[in-house]
Design a protein around this nucleic acid. Structure first.
Lengths: 361, 361
DNA sequence: CTGAAAGCGCTAACAT
DNA sequence: ATGTTAGCGCTTTCAG
């Protein structure tokens, strides 16, 4: 019934090359290792022979003796979420530079799946980048005992972390809203298991404090378009003129839900998202959002992981933080209801639409 | 400067288990292989001991002797393209069922990158799913000599293929357009290296023939939002009332470009996309599009690959074809004006509002 | 059904 | 600088 499809195609091994070149196998091996001895006349010749014979060193066998597989795992929370595409690109770029293969693991927003997949991949990888992991801190610490781990978008003590500057992002958004005359805003929360969700809310609180904007929170909702739509219903019952959502997908869903309820964005309500996914620029109205350097996140985390794999200690102090910027588009506008008290001056010249404010100036 | 971060953590091996259980290593090995001997009293005991010791068989070592790594590669054209997310999910689902790990390779629409990454991964994988590969047919055939390969969204003789029913999809779209009164349509082409692009255009030709709709083609353009925007400029110079684009992203870009030119969709122009990505439902107007069973594509292709890996011959005859359906939304509407005669040139000056393609409205 | 022995392809001490 | 000798952890003959 079944006929072997591939003749597993005898690879040419070190021995074939050794024989052909008239040297010992170990010499061949040496001709293919990293440092120095690249130029002994013999090594030269060996490489030629190897090339001619189409020799390729077998990474599995190599791994068996060196216990280095040259593969790393990149775990993302949800491959369906476009945020991760750029992160993956960044990570793969960094990994490819170091000739590492990346194993992508899609956790599908599930703690359980994440652990299971990781468990399976563990013996075949040299290290792990956890992007928006849904595992518990302690589970992550356990992993990090077995393999080098770098965590993205989350801060855990004793584990190297790369995060974006959420406080500043929120702050920028709140300032922007404040300048438009909003004196109170609602945060639409995402998954509770998300570290980013926690810090964003705390940052909202803090910014509200300093900027004298009243804040409240609704949620949690699923970090998806559907989640945002659900939030719209709940939001209708609250008096609010401005919201910040956990992420862009929710913002998009929210706007859709609001439209259905006859609430106009940005006239009746201003919406700010988080992430600056591609869709943010194609919805109507175009979404104002806090943009993170996605590619850089992936790249930085991966580079750091590589360093750890190569024996560096792993920067476990403060997390590395990457800058963000506010991208102002059309989903935010001046608060135009009359309730503003006369003593609260309107605005410092609202920024022209479409301008991009860079964090840090 | 560098201090070894991980003590590579001595794994417990077959020998430890063998010792503890008082049997020969080979016996332990047998207790962990697939068929029959699951129940010899000894095997039972061995498994218990193994569990207690936290033994996990090392896939690398196993692979070295069996030359089966239990990993497969899934190559996608562009991780940024949301179409692939569902395909990946489907593939991973099927793979996980068989306890295989999936290595995701993002070709970034580049022939060269695709080959390079594949080359690197080749020795560590048991098989390959090529989703929308940009490699040449012959390159793919060469790969398929070395490892089992299943190709998605493309038909190549001598290699098992899974495709969607492009002709029917196009046909449905054309019928829909025909029913709305359009008697001629433009196909906005995607990458020439894409097999799907070729067949879609041929299907347009054919449908045009049978339904008596005049067709033409513009392009190729990049299969992205930007590509679609560029197409808008070119489209303005053509008299058309309906277009089908290579994919949704282009359709979305196209609509944006058209809006910028003051052309109203669907009033002045009807647009049909391909793929039914999530964004198709959130743009304004919502995009009419041909939906493919993405998840199933990934799953079917992967299952087939698994069968091949397990020795089945590989179904190299006609490609397996998966059904599609037309999702009608708001980007298509009745042709509501007289067809402009060919000698009446399109306007070059900034159009009045809403109609430049058509005389008399 | 189990034990013994011989590798898979490579690298890492040791020698020379 | 090269050759020799042991394995890495597992599977797989081949005997008992």
């Amino acid at each position: 019934m079944s006929e072997q499809h591939k003749p597993p195609n005898k690879r040419t091994t070190i021995y074939h090359v050794a024989l052909e070149a008239g040297v010992a196998p170990s010499t061949v091996s040496r001709a293919f290792s990293k440092p120095s001895r690249v130029n002994s006349d013999t090594a030269q010749r060996i490489r030629q022979v190897a090339e001619r014979l189409g020799y390729r060193t077998n990474p599995l066998a190599r791994a068996l003796t060196t216990s280095r597989t040259h593969m790393i795992a990149l775990v993302i929370a949800d491959i369906t979420n476009p945020v991760f595409a750029e992160i993956v690109r960044g990570a793969q770029h960094a990994a490819a530079d170091a000739e590492l293969t990346t194993v992508l693991i899609d956790a599908q927003e599930s703690d359980r799946l994440e652990r299971a997949a990781l468990e399976r991949a563990l013996p075949t990888i040299d290290g792990i980048v956890l992007a928006s992991s849904r595992m518990s801190d302690s589970a992550i610490r356990v992993m990090s005992k077995q393999r080098p781990v770098v965590v993205l978008n989350r801060a855990i003590s004793d584990v190297p972390c790369v995060v974006t500057d959420n406080p500043r992002g929120v702050r920028r958004a709140a300032e922007h809203l404040g300048e438009l005359g909003h004196d109170h805003l609602t945060y639409v929360a995402g998954p509770e298991a998300s570290w980013a969700n926690g810090i964003r809310w705390r940052s909202v609180l803090e910014a509200g404090m300093e900027l004298e904007i009243r804040v409240r929170r609704i949620g949690p909702f699923s970090p998806t378009i559907e989640g945002g739509e659900m939030a719209a219903d709940e939001l209708r019952r609250r008096a609010t003129t401005a919201v910040i959502t956990y992420n862009d997908q929710m913002a998009i869903g929210l706007m859709r839900g609001l439209a259905r309820l006859g609430i106009n964005v940005p006239v009746d309500l201003s919406v700010v998202g988080f992430d600056n996914i591609v869709a943010a620029d194609i919805v109507t109205p175009r979404l104002t959002t806090v943009a993170a350097p996605l590619f850089a996140e992936g790249a930085v985390a991966t580079k750091h992981l590589l360093a750890m794999i190569n024996g560096s200690r792993g920067h476990t102090g403060q997390p590395m933080v990457l800058p963000v910027r506010l991208v102002v588009r059309d989903s935010t506008g001046p608060r135009k209801t009359e309730h503003r008290p006369p003593w609260a001056p309107a605005v410092n010249a609202p920024p022209p639409t479409n301008s991009i404010l860079l964090a840090g100036n």
